[in-house]
Computed example of a mutant assay.
Amino acid sequence: MKARLIYNPTSGNESILKSVADILDVLEQAGYEASAFRTTPEPQSAENEARRAAQAGFKLIVAAGGDGTLNEVVNGIAPLSKRPQMAIIPGGTTNDYARALKIPRNDPVAAARVILKKQTLPMDIGRAGEHYFMNIAGGGSMSELTYEVPSEYKSILGYLAYLVKGAEMLPRIKPMNMHLEYDDGVYDGAVTLFLSGLTNSVGGFEQVAPDSELGDGKLSLLIVKDTNIAEMLVLIAKALNGGKHINDPKIIYTKTRKLVVKPNDDQRIMINLDGEYGGDAPITLTVLQRHIEMYADLDAIPDESINTETPAEKQAEEHFVNSVNSLKNKE
């Protein structure tokens, strides 16, 4: 079996770069013939290498870097009919996906050792037009924060860089007029921010989607309506206080298999995919259920956070419910 480590040498204050030899040693211990690829400044460097390695028959691809590097690797293998297993070694600022999978976030070698536990989880992958995302798709002026934090600030200050930039941007946050279609309804109106996530972790907060289930085939959709600075600060405080924000009248919170995003005027709505620019609305977001098998520390993930129902079982259940409802309507 062959494993390919794809690593960003600048991530995590170069901690990943210093750990490459040790990570490869862990992969050898796990029974793989291991090799490494160092990403370059060229566009889609990690994405292109991930696709090449997958098509060359590698059984495991290990993505080491920030959320942007991980997103590129996912985009490299998600479109393929035959996909390798994937493991992640976080080296970014917020490392949301690592939080959800309970991967150590401050020690690249410890993150690699999760592979030795031989525990994997089939994870949902989101699709936005021709692009894919592994954790979050969002829009609104507040989501544009991630574009404005210089990479050198993120490397030096870490999550503090987002807090500093966020405080600077608060006076500039203005709602956008959007049309959002989801499974249970439609919202037309002013939106400060919308987030659609596949895990419970967003920007370092683990209560943004408090009832999120890994592998359930659904996006946890959070729509923040027209809010001023004071109201936004209250919502953030509620999110930090046990996820109580979802009950606020300024919030729409639901689960959906599909989300259509359209502007209601000429205003540009940029779509944020895992912290990176992913195109402009109009756009349709869907979920590829249990699409990529990821290494995770299953012992540390609560059972209630993992959906164990297979897509076939879910389809059968929905068919049964629809049949019952049809009989009721005939009565």
Rank of each mutant, 00 (worst) to 15 (best):
L116H: 09
E14A: 13
P79S: 10
N228C: 08
L60M: 10
I236L: 14
I271P: 07
V114I: 15
D188E: 15
P84R: 08
Q207A: 12
G129A: 07
I223C: 07
Y159A: 15
L163D: 04
K154M: 08
N322G: 03
R257T: 14
A100Q: 11
D248W: 01
V191N: 07
E293F: 01
P84F: 01
K59G: 07
G217H: 09
L5Q: 00
K255V: 05
A78R: 05
N322L: 13
A64V: 02
D299F: 02
G279V: 01
K330T: 06
G66W: 11
I173L: 15
D124L: 09
D248A: 04
D25Q: 14
P122G: 05
A34M: 07
E309R: 13
D124N: 05
D25A: 15
V260G: 00
D297F: 04
D107T: 06
S19Q: 08
I283D: 01
A63G: 12
L198F: 01
L288R: 12
S143K: 12
G57L: 08
T199R: 01
S220K: 12
A111N: 06
Y147V: 06
Q119Y: 01
S323C: 04
P108M: 14
P41D: 10
T39R: 09
N8M: 01
A110G: 07
E148K: 13
A98Q: 10
L157A: 14
N247H: 15
L80W: 04
V191A: 02
A64C: 01
Q55Y: 01
Y253L: 11
S45W: 09
N8A: 06
L80R: 02
M134N: 13
R127G: 00
V324G: 03
A56W: 02
M178W: 08
E72S: 11
